Simulated scan of single mutants.
Amino acid sequence: MAKRKRTQATSSQIENFLLPQKKHYRQRAHANPFSDHSLDYPSSPGVIHWASHYPAFHDTGKIPEFADIGCGFGGLLIALAPLFPDVLMLGMEIRVQVSQYVEDRIAALRVTASESSAGIDAIPHDYQNVSVVRANAMKFLPNYFSKHSLSSLFFLFPDPHFKSRKHKARIISPTLLAEYAFVLRPGGIVYTITDVKDLHEWMKVHLTAFPLFEPVDEETLRKEGKGPIIDAVYTSTEEGKKVQRNGGDKWLACFRRVQVSRNS
């Protein structure tokens, strides 16, 4: 009798089996940032046990350097993780089901990496440098990030809040820009992208008017080696892919945190 040949699952088969399905995490597209969402949040960045988020980095002293505000289903985090394996990245998402999906997705990808390292098929990255928290960034951003701790802040396809009376809920506003400038180190970059021209202009006007930010064009950032980040900003999110499928426009605007010189 012929000996039965053993077959090995590929990393793709393992990943498809383990990854969560979005259909089980359905939720409204947007959430009211002014509502009481019964969130637990740290009293300060210093009390956060980052090792629980990034166990592979527990003895390095590293803290998150990239922050994706309103990370949605985590497309940007998953795209950037292999490109910057030594950079810790944190997604912030207010919707409970969506943030749970991202958490489960990261856990599944880490297990996939573990299975691959056990001798199945190698995959390029273990996703130990990405994590997510359910949080309202409009209220609690300084509770997670200390002064000048971030090098990149991402606002990708944020809720446009079309009605004028809702503009105060937009994630880019004069009040919130002070917080973004606080957590972003000098030279750090704010990345914004949207398919809504009015929102694009709104974000540009407010960021340009704020004294601690200056506009930086895409060509300059690519020359500085940030091309892979720009590409991920354009293409990695669910919203970005939808706009691309529908043949819509994407409006990118990036700003650099200004170094302030103080005269004695």
Rank of each mutant, 00 (worst) to 15 (best):
His161Leu: 05
Arg134Met: 09
Gln97Trp: 02
Ile171Gln: 03
Gln128Phe: 05
Ser264Glu: 13
Leu109Trp: 05
Ile14Lys: 01
Leu18Lys: 04
Tyr101Asp: 07
Tyr191Asp: 01
Trp251Tyr: 15
Val243Pro: 00
Trp50Asn: 06
Met138Ile: 07
Val260Thr: 15
Glu238Thr: 10
Leu76Trp: 01
Ala108Asp: 08
Ala137Tyr: 05
Arg262Glu: 12
Ile229Gly: 01
Val111Tyr: 06
Glu15Asn: 07
Val190Gln: 02
Leu88Trp: 05
Lys204Phe: 07
Ala232His: 05
Gly225Lys: 09
Phe145Gln: 07
Lys3Ser: 11
Pro20Val: 09
Gln97Val: 01
Ala9Phe: 15
Gly61Met: 10
Gly70Phe: 02
Val96His: 14
Ala108Asn: 08
Tyr180Cys: 03
Ile230Thr: 04
Ile123Asn: 13
Glu201Ala: 10
Arg256Ala: 09
Met92Ser: 10
Arg110Leu: 08
His49Ala: 11
Ala253Gly: 13
Leu88Gln: 03
Leu221Pro: 04
Tyr127Cys: 03
Ser35Cys: 03
Lys226Met: 14
Cys71Lys: 05
Tyr191Thr: 02
Gly46Ile: 02
Gln97Lys: 15
Pro211Thr: 09
Ser43Asn: 13
Met89Trp: 07
Arg170Ile: 07
Glu201Leu: 14
Ser264Ala: 14
Ala51Cys: 04
Ser35Leu: 11
Thr10Glu: 04
Thr237Asn: 06
Arg170Leu: 08
Glu214Cys: 08
